[in-house]
Amino acid sequence: MKIYIIDDDIDIVGALTASLEAAGYEVGSQYEEEDLVEKIGRFNPDLIILDVMFPGDPGAGFRMARTIRHQDRLSRIPIIMLSAVNREGDFLCKFSSRDIDEVYLPVTEFVEKPVDPAVLIAKIKKLTA
């Protein structure tokens, strides 16, 4: 089973990779938006873990989710949005509730950072079953 992580934080990517690999997953990752579709396509993951805020662009994760969803080849890969951006607080004031719909934020699951890897792995299992 292959998991792909997109997050600009080197420590988050490092810790997640170690936890997921210990649980038996094959893990790939990238830190920025560049060549998103090509890199995901090459790795061919079963699930994607995606951050929201990237340097200089607090909403880049949303855009990346849409990009992934609009690719025929990638559109069925489940996406877990994993971010320190808080859904109840930040979303409603900054991004408004329309942002969590299928068009604007087409992700499968939203998980707030930090997350216990055990909880994350349970979600991954459910989404990839």
Binding site: D9, D11, I12, G14, A15, L16, A18, S19, A22, M53, P58, A84, V85, D90, C93, K94, K113, P114, D116, P117, A118
Partner: peptide, 26 residues
């Protein structure tokens, strides 16, 4: 808003690392 995120980022990183220790991942 950005400040909130910047303050949360290290918490996420440190927590991620502590989970590695707790679960004896290495």
């Amino acid at each position: 808003r950005v400040l909130g995120h910047e303050l949360k980022a290290p918490i996420g990183a440190v927590a991620g690392n502590l989970y590695l220790l707790r679960d004896r991942v290495m």
